[in-house]
């Protein structure tokens, strides 16, 4: 065999030609994503204030991780808050998005206009959203309280929705869901419109009720879309941050703290950069596991349906 042939065989065996398709992605990814990630990983084992030169950082082993898991109640409380908002968003926000999508899918008049209107909140700047909702929620001539008074409910007079520990987190969650349902709506509507209407027609001829059609036609066909929307929701909600800062700044007390505000507090407030990195990695690992479970479970469900 001559050498050229050997080379060609090797080339095919290792699929180098195929590999070159992913090569640009790998180069960019490993340079700009993996390298910084390794630096963060390294720093999570160091005591470093984020200001003085990096070589002055002190190696302390896994002390940061031990602290997170044994002596950081506030951190886990903030994770819990993000969890609550995520569960609310996964259910209420996505159900609302689905209902609205189904209503528009019905071929209702003005469907195209709604498609544009519901996309407005995600596009809007956080500053405008903050100002508007502060005005709605505030206890001093707030819009919501005026509405209750108008409806004859006097219980909530002077209620400051964002300052009450019982309502603050849910009030923020409502804003977040309102801001995010537009994405879900559009993706779900797109999914619904693609379903062959003949399937419904056939089902209706068989006398199927709406509920049956939903379970037996819509659900199985929409499963990949549901996965997509729910992963987007989880990622968007877990990383909620600017809304919290502009609405409550984590207060009252610690009632609306979320992981990202705690990471930033340790990074910039306390000047413990290494600890902030450790917190971020722990949180990232949790999200990763959660998303993997989600993908696995949904794939399983899809097979069953």
């Amino acid at each position: 065999m001559d050498t050229l042939e050997v080379k060609q065989k090797l080339f095919h065996k290792l699929k180098i030609g195929n590999f070159s398709f992913v090569l640009p992605a790998i180069i960019i990814f490993s340079l700009f994503n993996v390298y910084p990630l390794f630096l963060i990983l390294k720093l999570s084992f160091f005591e470093w204030n984020g200001i003085s030169p990096l070589d002055q950082a002190k190696f302390i082993g896994i002390k940061h991780f031990i602290e997170i898991f044994t002596n950081d109640k506030l951190w886990w409380q903030s994770v819990w808050h993000a969890g609550i908002i995520t569960i609310l968003a996964l259910t209420i926000q996505n159900v609302l998005a689905l209902l609205l999508a189904m209503a528009v899918d019905r071929g209702i008049r003005g469907g195209n206009i709604y498609r544009v209107i519901f996309f407005l909140p995600p596009v809007l700047s956080g500053i405008v959203i903050g100002l508007i909702w502060q005005w709605i929620y505030n206890g001093h001539h707030g819009l919501l309280n005026h509405l209750f008074t108008f409806l004859g409910i006097t219980r909530f007079e002077n209620m400051a929705w964002l300052a009450d520990p019982d309502t603050a987190l849910y009030s923020v969650a409502i804003i977040h869901m309102w801001r995010g349902f537009g994405w879900g709506f559009i993706i779900l509507l797109a999914g619904l419109q693609s379903i062959d209407s003949q399937l419904y027609e056939a089902a209706e001829v068989d006398g199927a009720e709406t509920w049956h059609k939903f379970i037996h036609i819509t659900c199985p066909l929409m499963m990949p879309v549901f996965i997509l929307v729910s992963i987007l929701t989880i990622l968007g909600t877990m990383q909620i941050y600017d809304l919290i800062v502009s609405m409550t700044n984590g207060g009252p007390e610690y009632y609306t703290e979320v992981p990202i505000t705690r990471i930033l507090a340790s990074m910039r407030g306390e000047n413990r950069f290494g600890y902030a990195c450790a917190r971020g990695l722990v949180f990232g690992a949790m999200l990763l596991i959660l998303s993997m479970i989600q993908i696995k479970v949904s794939k399983h469900m899809q097979k069953d349906l």
Binding site: L31, F32, Y35, P36, L37, L39, I40, L43, G50, L54, L235, M238, Q239, P259, I260, I263, L264, M267, F273, A276, C277, G280, L281, F283, G284, L287, L288, S291
Partner: peptide
């Protein structure tokens, strides 16, 4: 899935 606010500093160094 990794939300690390400190990543920007690392990126800047890079």
């Amino acid at each position: 899935m990794l939300p690390i606010p400190g990543i920007f500093l690392a990126l800047y160094v890079l």
